[in-house]
Structures are given as structure tokens and as C-alpha cells.
Design a protein around this nucleic acid. Sequence first.
RNA 1: GCCCCCAUCGUCUAGCGGAUAGGACGCCAGGUUCUCAUCCUGGUAACAGGGGUUCGAUUCCCCUUGGGGGUGCCA
Length: 458
Amino acid sequence: MFPRALALGYAAVPSSIGEVPDMSVRVRFAPSPTGHVHIGNMRAAIFNWLFARHGGGEFLLRIEDTDRERSTPEALRTIFDAMEWLGLDFDGEPFFQSAHLDAHRAAAGQLLRDGRAYRADKGGLGKGECVVFRMPPEDAVFTDGIRGELRKAAADMSDFVILRADDTPVFHLSNVVDDIAMGITHVIRGDDHIENTFRHVALFRALGAPPPRYAHLPMIVNAQGKPYSKRDGDAYVGDLRARGFHPEAVFNYLTLLGWSPGDDREKLARAEAVRLFTLDRVKSAPAQMDLRKMTHLNAQYVAGMPAADFAAAAREWAQSQAWWREPDETYFRGVCALMQSRTHLYSFIAEWGYFFADDFAYDEKTVRKLLRKEGAGAALRAASAALAETDFSEAAIEAALRAAEKERGIEEGRINQPVRAAATGLAHGAGLYETLALIGKDRVLRRLSRAAEELCGA
RNA sequence: GCCCCCAUCGUCUAGCGGAUAGGACGCCAGGUUCUCAUCCUGGUAACAGGGGUUCGAUUCCCCUUGGGGGUGCCA
């Protein structure tokens, strides 16, 4: 259902001379297939991936699908799509938690036999007896890879349910048993799990397994400084894609949320991030997403793409537009060359209609400001007449416009914007002469006449 | 309530006892220019507060405040 490996070629990159790849590193990304892929989860996936690839270890995927009520195939698909989009290739086959319920129950049985757990009816709605883990009497302590030593007094912790009365395992049990089964060496997860970790460490010990190393990532919060909720539309990876972000830019931006290479570099190639990533450089304070900064980074990525790559990406976006007409490839490349540096997000491509068809939309404000003006119609007619006599080269277009201005007594350069508005419907865009030359003489003259007739005032 | 975590410009961050507290986004001003974008130049703006420790605190410790998390037979 998913390519076994995305073959991106970033596996096992030793970070520096003398640093031996630690083949024993095994981390996992463990999402629940119950909806969208939350941005915070995906950032955790990225950090796990970076950590694994940096050390030459393995990055595993575990699907925590034991919540039968809420788990859906679509949500599972969404997880795979998001990971593939961001280039997070995982090692081996996905581990489906629902296939290991027996192992979870067996672990509960073992704890029961060892006296580390007991049966009890914790009240509630008379559901009967469940299995409760007995917290050891010692204080809980573990060394967090990001925050250092974390501890919690035994008195502040209480026993907790690991197996429900209906014989289904609770998150804590499944999580720990699966981590043991998968040979997980490092657990890198959100800091909302810190409290759980105190309990999980005790569970590992009770099951006779050494606890993995833990590292708790700071949360990503929304523009209000609050945790993301379903209400925050831009909190999902799929939305970022739909909004025109380039995956490498999103990857790069998310990498920088809570981590930095230690110097002023921000635009980091994936391989570079892999080489530089270490947990001790991860911050412990929460971070806010800044869509504008991410957009800026996106613009840099788009502007820096090889022309052919940009054309391919632009084509996909353009094809879904209502105005799309299959153009000559050379022409399409010409459009891309003109517009690449202006395409901060792929969604900007929605404005490219005027390059491909005559029935593009005129921006109302632009029409009002540039065309419904005294003398605008006459100016356009003069421009049209002058342009008609040229070979429509960029230089000839410029000369013709200057001549038209002279004829109508218009200040030099002032005819450009009305002409642009008439020919493209917009007040912004690439250089006017290049744009007109590319669109072509016939189309431009037709648009100027039409605009003079139908849009110009006075 | 109790417990845990966190705290540098509006935002993302650098800083790991001695610096004019640096960079980036945003914003403002200017240059380039037919517009927009790019690009270049300059500017704006921060160590939450109070105690310690120290010759010296953004940095180490404590308290307060603020924010977040946990306190489920959710994950």
C-alpha cells in the first residue's frame, strides 16, 4: 500500500569524521489513524526521522489503530500521503498495533503473575474488574535528551489501569509493549507525554526491559499561542499542500521550529539538516507557526528551483485551473520563466489565466483605478495603433508605447499600467514588454480594443 | 486543588559568567524600476518581575507572575 522505501538516499549519513554511525538506533513515529495529520505530530515525525538518518539508525512507523471506533482507512491514507509528501521514508513494514493485542494482554498477565499489577474494580459504571499497574514506591527519574533529568515523587503518582474490564489494553500498556517488541531505543515525542513517561519507565522496568532514552519536544502552538485544535485550519499537513506550499520548504521550516543548527543558517537542504541534527540543540520552549515566514522560505525554494522542476510543478497547478488550455511547451516555459520569482506559493498560479485565454477575469479594483479614467480609452487606442505597426519585439513594444504617450501628451511611462490592466486584468506582473511580447500581438491588440470599448470610462 | 514542563525583539531563533544582546520573518524608509516580485542599503523592536550566588549575570539557584501539560477503564 505504500512504497517500502522512498529511496531518497539520505540513509546513514555519518555526521562528522570520527562519529561512528550507531546502528542500534531505532526510533518510531506512532500516529493514530483518526483524522488529519496534525502539524505537531508531523514535526515529531520529522525530528524522529532526522535523528534516525543522522545516526544511521532506523525510522519505523507504528500505526496506533486500537481505537476501532475512530480509526479509518482514509486517515491511514492521509498519514502515508503526508509522509510521502514530506519525504519521510520509513524502514521496514508499518507495525499495526491492532495486530498485537494478544501480546499486550500477555504482558498484563505477566505483570499480574509477578505481582506488579492487580485486579480491581475502579468503580465507574460497574464495568467490572480491570488490571491495574502498581507503581513502585521509588521516585520516578529519567534523563530527557532535551531537558536533562526529570523527576517525580512517588507520592505524586498513583497506580493506573493497563487492561480494561473488557480485556482491551490501555494506551500505556500497548505503547510500552510495542516499543519493546520493536526494539525502540529512543522515544522522541511531544512534551505532553512527559507525565506518561514517568509511568512508562516504570512499566518497562516491571516488564524486565531497559527503558529507551526519551526526548520530549516542545509543542507547536497557533497564532494565539494556544495548542492547535480542530478549529485551526492551517494545522494540517494536507492544508499546507493545498495552499501551495512546496514540501521541501515545509520540511525545512518545520525543522527550524524548535531546533536550529546553532548558527544563522535557515535555508537548509535536507541532507544538511540530517548532517547537523542533534537532540541537544532542540529547544524546550513551545513555538508558534508563522505562516508568513514559512511563505518567505517557500518563495526562496520556488525561486531557486531548476526551471524544469518549476515548470513541472507549475503545470500541475495550472492544469487544475478553469482557464487552462493546453499550451505549446515553449510558450509554457516562457510563462514560467517570467513568473517563477513571483510565485511565492504555487497557489499564486491561479492568476496566470491571462497567459492562456482571453476570457480571464479583470480585477475590479484595477479596472477602476487604471481604466475607468478620463482619456484611458483614447490612450489604449493610441497604444494599440502604435503597437499594430511593430514586429512586437520587446524593444519595439517599448518604443511604440513611448510614441503613443507622446501622441496623447501622456507623461513618459504612464501608459504602461493601463496597458497592463487591459492586457492582463491585473496591476502587477512580470515586466510589461516581456509579458506582452510573450502573449503575442494578436491577443494583445484584441484585448486593448476590447478594454477600450467595454471597460474604459469617458 | 495537587503534580510536571516552559519563559531573549510581535514571531522563529543565536547566546551556554565579561558582547554596542547577533540573525531571520514582519513592519518602516530609501535605492533599482513600467507595476508586482526579486535584489541592495538603512531603521524599528527583546533578556517577564523580585531576590540571591559571583568581582561580574540574559546565562547558575530560589520565589513570584504568566503560559502549557497531566491528574480517564482517551491516545
